[in-house]
Design a protein around this nucleic acid. Structure first.
Length: 834
RNA sequence: GCCGAAGUGGCGGAAUAGGCAGACGCGCACGACUCAAAAUCGUGUUCCCUACGGGAAUGAGGGUUCGAUUCCCUCCUUCGGCACCA
């Protein structure tokens, strides 16, 4: 060992990292198998899309997650920490159109490159569980799940105006249209509306359940985003009638204002518009409809736009008072929310007020602030609390600002509506059903067959997977090659056996990622989507880590998916992922988002080559609060590199190692050794706490502090003492999750301890050792620190007080007088008021 | 407009059952080693002042308290989400 120490005198990550990675792999050190004797821990980090190269963001997401998984393993858990690829998707296909490279070829080449890059992280991924969503053995089950949802009545086909990305040539789910200007989540192109028949999942069926986060340890932020996205609103649905007797259902959150409904407004696309429009208004209404259809959603939905509309000439009957009220058409009413028709109560709704003022429609006050006389002409809509007036049987009923049943006025009116049979309590959501059809090739085929006689039927399950044909051509128009393929879509009807055609659309890739955590359990299992035994042992996911950008997409889809599978009897439990933590984003050194066009991209490969993976891992954990993220700093990483080198030096320098230091062994004072041991255990307590709480930056800084302390102890001659040996032992165990290679090298080759450090237990914390013997307390006089006193750690309040008052400085300030007040903040500080 | 998060040295960030603000690191300065440089090691590093000593300071202002980065109120800035949602 001595010779080896001399040989490897300077830290050389290249020499040690690859060596250990190979040995760990050969020894299957990170293979996770069912072990009933240990508690399990399923740690999951979001799988990457195989875009080409691993970037620093992947490292930022994955290596702290890996460190924590390693920590859990050392704490005695049987940890599963798998990795895979979300391999279907548009970029590969767009590249195929542009460059003529088949997306399959390109995807698998990228996967190979990224897998290789990932292996340089030294993460504890169990590669035998790798799952790739574009493998037929994977997407067979994605298709199978579609059929299960279809059978459960959760998949349906509907003609509707859907969002279409003209650049990517496909429809998008509502969640994938982002921002005020309604852009495609992938490519940033503004989307347009298109009338298409498409497949949907009935996610809205689970809206209420998705609002319930009981038992989930998820960030408030994500829960809020999902709650706002679903946007539940309570109210009533009420049936109005046209003069010819057609029913018009409306949704309102303010049934208490029904008596103030002085007109109705239809969305331009409302099906009854044509019928209620009188001949003399027909031209104007049609012109308005045509104009609305031409306008983009962005123009239409601009909030500050002045309201426009036209009168249809038709009238409706307000069912609560049988008033005859005019029906207008206006584009501020959206067909996509509620029923596409509203009752307008100008006195108590700002939008209706503005519209009524503009077109001279009547305004009837029905809620009045309590104790106030009739206000005369209203200057603005009144939204506050008050009592109902001009409301027939409800005059005098109190109304507050609560929603739904919590509001006495609303509650009373709902009861009355239900009794009379003209309306009922109702809940509305912004949340929409999940549109999953994509007019693209590189995705899991939707396993449905259309027959002219028998309509749509699923592909028989024994014929799965519906394989993607490989002999396909791309047209520059971007049209799906599945549609253009000469034979692929031809098949037979599963009901009658006559010629029929396949669905040529593929599934949204979020479908693939909704269940990948299940495929990891048994990626090559062919009797089902997962092996039951694996499921029973590992699920649910205990800790899930990934970016916040998926709050209302992936994270909502996967919750819906799990609930749907639960109801289909495929999985158990209400939630797939119990604990969620989001990491922030690494920005470029210019404090901007990293992008090739800005030229501020940090390549992890270059860093690994220069510093070694351990340093990159350490710096990633150290340089920012994990959930916040921060700009990269090329100078800053030098600090972490220095720290790792200093560890190396301390553990390998011949003057430090026990066997070479026998002359100085034990020469340190008891005080030095006591201090070293105390610091080691205090650090252990801190690091343990911080790992539990994902506070990676302070883990590294605590380890830096302890190292500095160990250097001091070395100077004071502590090397070779039991305290020194213990500190070394604890140090490497704590270091192992952060910097697994150097920890292994020092542990196994320099300290000669049993391989592998990654199979060791987390060190045992000794409360007694961490305890302070004496404590120093600041003494404040009138809120300012004037002195410090030193007292035994176990000193009581009286003793501390006496010591403080005995201090010379304090006596000087007191000048013989009695203090007004002496406060001893236990073991923290003494505060004296004069 | 509504909802949410965040504002601490030159920089990244520590510290919140209310208790020494600036841990740890970067950078910078000075020193040691060196012919010299790099590396390394050591010391210092919030700001202001007649500097032994004192004062101010955690986006701004106010409040509660012996004591506030931490709690409360008002406001400012930045970022994120939603938005004519009936």
């Amino acid at each position: 060992m001595k010779e080896e120490t001399r040989k490897d005198i300077s830290y050389n990550p290249k020499a040690i990292e690859h060596k250990w990675q190979e040995k760990w792999e050969a020894d299957k050190l990170y293979r996770s198998v069912i072990d009933e004797s240990k508690p399990k821990h399923y740690a999951l980090t979001m799988l990457p899309y195989p875009s080409g190269d691993l970037h620093i963001g992947h490292w930022y997401a994955m290596t702290p997650s890996d460190a924590r998984a390693r920590f859990m393993r050392m704490r005695g858990y049987n940890v599963l920490f798998p990795m895979g690829f979300d391999a279907f998707g548009l970029p590969a296909e767009n590249a195929a159109i542009k460059e003529g490279i088949h997306p399959m070829k390109r995807t698998y080449e990228n996967i190979e490159r990224m897998r290789k890059q990932m292996k340089t992280m030294g993460a504890m991924f169990d590669w035998e569980r790798e799952a790739v969503s574009s493998d037929p053995e994977y997407y067979k089950w994605t298709e199978w799940f579609f059929i299960q949802l279809y059978k459960a009545g959760l998949a349906y086909r509907k003609l509707s105006a859907v969002d279409w990305c003209p650049k990517d040539n496909t429809t998008l789910a509502r969640e994938q249209v982002i921002g005020e200007d309604r852009r495609c989540e992938r490519c940033g192109t503004p989307v347009v509306k298109k009338e298409l028949e498409q497949w949907f999942f009935r996610a809205t069926k689970y809206a209420d359940e998705l609002l319930n986060f009981d038992g989930l340890d998820w960030p408030e932020r994500v829960k809020t985003l999902q709650t706002n996205w679903i946007n539940r609103s309570e109210g009533a649905s009420v049936i109005f009638k046209t003069e010819s007797g057609d029913e018009i259902e409306i949704f309102t959150t303010r049934p208490d204002t029904l008596w103030g409904a002085t007109f109705m407004v239809f969305s331009p696309e409302h099906p009854l518009v044509d019928k209620v429009t009188t001949p003399e208004n027909k031209a104007a209404v049609e012109a308005y409809q045509a104009q609305a259809a031409r306008q983009s959603d962005i123009e239409r939905e601009a909030v500050d736009k002045e309201k426009t509309g036209v009168f249809t000439g038709g009238y409706a009957i307000n069912p609560v008072n049988n008033e005859r009220i005019p029906i207008w058409v206006a584009d501020y009413v959206l067909m996509s929310y509620g029923t596409g028709a509203i009752m307008a109560v100008p006195a108590h709704d700002e939008r209706d007020f503005a519209f009524a003022k503009k077109y001279g429609l009547p305004i009837v006050e029905v809620i009045r602030p309590e104790g106030q006389e009739e206000a005369g002409e209203l200057q603005e809509a009144y939204i506050g609390e008050g009592v109902m007036v001009n409301s027939g049987p409800f005059n005098g009923t109190k109304v507050n600002t609560e929603k739904g049943r919590k509001n006495p006025g609303i509650s009373a009116v709902i009861d009355w509506l239900e009794e009379k049979g003209i309306g009922k309590e109702s809940v509305n959501y912004r949340y929409r059903d999940w549109l999953i059809s994509r007019q693209r090739y590189w995705g899991a085929p939707i396993p449905m067959i259309h027959c002219d006689v028998h309509g749509w039927n699923p592909v028989p399950e024994d014929q799965l997977p519906v394989m993607l044909p490989e002999d396909v051509e791309w047209k520059p128009t971007g049209e799906s090659p599945l549609k253009l393929h000469p034979t692929w879509k031809n098949t037979t009807c599963p009901v009658c056996g006559e010629p029929a055609t396949r669905e040529t659309d593929t599934m949204d890739t979020f479908m693939c990622s909704s269940w990948y955590h299940l495929r990891y359990l048994s990626p090559h299992y062919d009797k089902g989507p997962f092996d039951e035994a694996e499921y029973n042992y590992w699920m649910p996911v205990d800790t899930y880590t990934g970016g916040i950008e998926h709050a209302t997409m992936h994270l909502l889809y996967t919750r819906f998916f799990h609930k749907a599978l639960r109801d289909a009897g495929i999985v158990e439990g209400n939630e797939p992922m119990m604990q969620l933590r989001n990491q922030g984003m690494v920005l470029g050194e210019d404090n901007e988002k990293m992008s090739k066009s800005r030229g501020n991209v940090i390549a992890p490969d270059v860093l690994v080559d220069r510093y070694g993976a351990d340093t990159v891992r350490a710096y990633i954990m150290f340089f920012a609060r994990w959930e916040m993220g921060a700009p990269w700093d090329s100078q800053g990483i030098e600090g972490s590199a220095r720290w790792i080198r200093r560890i190396w030096v301390l553990f390998t320098d011949p003057s430090t190692t026990a066997q070479d230091a026998s002359d100085s062994s034990g020469s340190a004072s008891a005080e030095v050794k006591r201090t070293l041991r105390r610091k080691a255990h205090q650090t252990l307590r801190k690091v343990t706490h911080d790992f539990e709480n994902f506070e990676f930056n302070t883990i590294v800084s605590s380890l830096m502090e302890l190292l500095n302390e160990m250097y001091k102890a070395r100077e004071a001659g502590a090397v070779g003492s039991p305290e020194w040996n213990e500190a070394q032992d604890i140090y490497l165990r704590m270091l192992a999750p952060v910097a697994p290679h150097i920890a292994e090298e020092l542990w196994t080759n320099h300290l000669g301890k049993p391989y592998s450090i990654h199979q060791q237990q987390w060190p045992k914390f000794d409360e007694e050792a961490a305890k302070e013997d004496v404590i120093e307390l600041p003494v404040q006089i009138n809120g300012k620190v004037r002195d410090r006193i030193t007292v035994p750690a176990e000193a009581g309040e009286e003793e501390i007080k006496a010591a403080a008052l005995a201090s010379e400085t304090v006596r000087k300030y007191l000048d013989g007088k009695e203090p007004k007040k002496v406060i001893v903040a236990h073991k923290r500080l003494v505060s004296i008021v004069i």
